[in-house]
Amino acid sequence: MAKTDKQPLLDSELELFFNAARKADVEPSADVFNAIIADAEAQLSAVETLPVVGQGSQEGGWLQSIFSAIGGWPAAASLASATVAGVWIGFTQPVQLETLSGGLVLSGDYTAADTSYALEDLAPGYLGTTLFAEDEG
């Protein structure tokens, strides 16, 4: 029996339409193709001719001059790394420092040493530590 117009298409019938659409010619014309390529080349040229900030001009100011003088980004990166390392060494416990130095800096367990030095032993009177000692009795 023939299907009536009121019955929706089956998936297989609808697929014929999708197939036909997939086969349809959608190649861009030569003009469009050339225009797209011209845009690509113009964009490349625009990127290549962008002025470098601070190069050969005074626009960067004194901060830019200092930045350039120390060697630019590579030097700034090294400086940042050294700063972070310095902070870490400053905060880390001496035990770790000993581990890192292979026992050259400190030997034994520093935290369990028999002899320990308080700040007032090293710098008597410094920052009024004697007052604290007196308060403690």
């Binding site: 299907k3 117009d5 009121k6 929706p8 298409l9 089956l10 019938e13 609808l14 014929l16 339409f17």
Partner: peptide, 15 residues
Amino acid sequence: LAKDLAGRREELGYG
């Protein structure tokens, strides 16, 4: 789409 194109069944040669 299946409803809309149902009317084209005979015309497009698969009914």
